[in-house]
Design a protein around this nucleic acid. Structure first.
Lengths: 111, 111
DNA sequence: ACATTTACTACGACAGTCATAGTACGACAG
DNA sequence: CTGTCGTACTATGACTGTCGTAGTAAATGT
């Protein structure tokens, strides 16, 4: 039974996160659950990977964080995608098509 | 202009190499040129990456090496895919389909 | 009341890639 | 016959993203 290896997805975690932030800000735990459900449980991002992605992307200016000044509920750190982040996401999307085409030249379906 | 980032392909270098070894043994320089041409110049594997992949895969039993006892020409180290290597390659192929499906849930084409 | 879920943070290890550098042989041009 | 280019590697060390492990702490469920 072959599983998703993280080496494969490496470099697309950021993309997945940005996809989910595209419409509205969100925070770690929610993102992680959305990745799980959108991928039909096939990919579960590790917590450390996720949070370090946030930190990295904030440093790169792809997201910005703000605290929930709530009104009950736990304190959370929300992340909002920036324009640079949207740009980066778009680049990753077109890169994806390229990459997919390249890799598929090396995949056999007939074995 | 978006380029193939090696982070994406990371974890598929081995697969590409094994694909090329499937029919007959080959050696570093040739493999590297085949990857370049099969990918239509879109992906050029770094020499160090390639040779360290060979070493790793030999250690893992996916390939075995032998020297060309040639007959003129330069001395080369050839690699031959093993049964374990074929098995591994097949697993990577089915993993690829899974991975592709997962990632595509996070790619927008309409932006 | 106690366990589980939520929501993180810290730290260090590891693997694969990459930049850089160097070796060495053969072919071919001028 | 000398120098450059293409071939065919090896060595070393840095870097990046992921992951294992651990710990904290508030909120929610039973």
């Amino acid at each position: 039974m072959s599983n998703i290896s993280s080496d494969v997805i490496r470099g697309y975690n950021d993309t997945m996160i940005l996809y989910l932030l595209w419409e509205q800000p969100s925070y770690g735990y929610e993102i992680s659950k959305q990745i799980k459900s959108l991928s039909e449980e096939k990919y579960i991002i590790k917590e450390t990977t996720l949070y370090s992605a946030f930190t990295r992307m904030e440093k790169n200016g792809y997201v910005e964080s703000f605290s929930s000044d709530e009104n009950g509920g736990k304190r959370r750190t929300y992340y909002r995608i920036t324009d640079a982040g949207r740009q980066y996401y778009k680049e990753k999307c077109s890169e994806w098509h390229l990459t997919k085409d390249v890799i598929e030249n090396f995949i056999r379906d007939d074995i």
